[in-house]
Nucleic acid binder design. Structure first.
Lengths: 238, 238
DNA sequence: GAGCGCTCGTGATGGTGATCACAAGCAGTT
DNA sequence: AACTGCTTGTGATCACCATCACGAGCGCTC
């Protein structure tokens, strides 16, 4: 898997510039070298499953390019999407560290590339480099916060409209907003949005209609324009 | 705060025998000694708040005696209880490690005792003892799993009865069950149960009535007897 | 262009649980 | 015993949203 230097599409994958707080950035030369030795890179098509909920943890995936969605399902087929991951994210870390089955499934939403670090190698690496272990702990805490945000959304927000507004706001903060109105490239189906906020596809469709009617948002092709941000915040109000 | 050896009510508090996987057990002599130096012990009455959601993290609390409930609230006053902690649990670890505000409030449900370890001291301790940092990471992963279990409960289980059954089962597995029927000391009000499963007090009352009628459970004073475990599992079915 | 698969819009309907309201039980205090 | 505060039981009502159903739009392939 280790290609000669310079031949990889994204050779600096482990040190993605995308995230300043990136887990494996700014390591000592020695540690960086060793990480480079135990990682392997692969390219994935859209729809590829990096891992599936319930599987024994094989290792972690460091997403270099492409987006992935993390989801968990009930036996009856109901699915919730718990996170949308982007380049720089480390997937499967919790399972590897605690040696429990993957708690979610990870599916590529578009073609991408990821580094894989086998479980045993990573754990040995962490034992040898205590300072990295602490950073792993920090990353896990951040994951924990994300999970808690999810809990608050699912448990405290009562109505679908509240959750929907919350989701829209979380999108709009990510983008550079020019004087109030924010634009977001929408690349999710209504079905997927429904799985994020825990409702049905029909309800999401109706919410779009309603919010358009109330001038809260606008749809230009596949670009979502957030009008009237304050009104959305008022709907969320938690 | 450091009492002479043997004078504390629970002097071996940091090495509680309650949990085998306890975070601060089986440390090296040196590390254990140092932990002992930076910790301080306090006694809390029922209703005492160890920390409150949104506060800057002062440090972690190692619960030695008594139970505590962790909860998060929305601005409108709706509250969900996310975890019931027992002796041996470490509270506030995530916030301290990632230096973010406490994501929950911790309230003593009965009189108890806890060790406090200030944030700075703990972080320095972890930097000096890489092997403990790894164990902290493991603990954080376990917390993460608990949070995910919560997400699955809130997001995937649709009906209150499903969540209620799930809660009952989680209680019954903790107790030694003699031939099928499990007994649990019930020390929660219906209101609190409602806050755990995310519904209303009235619905919980009705669920109790219904489950009693269907012979799924029985109430002897404040002792809850789980009859017909399989039926409960069938209700959960996820 | 016909056919197929996927996504989206929207109406009709019905069940379910939140909400309101009130009474009763129970413990502790004076 | 009367009072107070907290908890529990239960009825009545009603909004809301899941579900079912169907048609339309759109891109793709054969």
């Amino acid at each position: 898997m280790r290609a000669p230097y310079g031949l990889n599409i994204l050779d600096n994958c482990l040190t993605c510039p995308v995230r300043e707080e990136h887990l494996f950035c700014n390591l000592s030369v020695h540690a960086g070298q060793r990480l480079n030795d135990i990682k392997s890179t692969a390219v994935y098509p859209k729809g590829a499953m990096l891992f599936i909920e319930g599987q024994q943890p094989r290792g972690v995936f460091v997403l270099c390019a492409g987006k992935a969605k993390l989801s968990t399902s009930s036996r009856e087929g109901k699915t919730i999407i718990t996170k949308l991951s982007e380049a720089g994210d480390v997937l499967g870390l919790n399972s590897v560290v605690s040696n429990r089955p993957y708690e979610v499934s990870a599916e590529m939403m578009e073609p991408g590339q990821a580094n894989f670090i086998p479980r045993e190698s990573l754990l040995q690496f962490l034992k040898d480099h205590g300072e990295v272990a602490l950073r792993v702990a920090e990353q896990l805490s951040r994951n924990y916060y994300t999970a808690y945000e999810e809990i608050r959304t699912l448990g405290l927000a009562t109505s679908p409209s509240e959750k929907f507004a919350k989701l829209l706001l979380s999108w709009s903060t990510k983008t550079t907003q020019n004087d109030g109105a924010a634009q977001v490239k929408l690349m999710l189906t209504h079905e997927e949005i429904a799985e994020i906020i825990g409702t049905t596809r029909e309800t999401v469709s109706r919410l779009f209609s309603e919010f358009k009617r109330r001038q809260l948002l606008q749809l230009k092709g596949s670009t979502l324009v957030i009008r009237n941000r304050p009104a959305l915040e008022k709907i969320v109000q938690s």
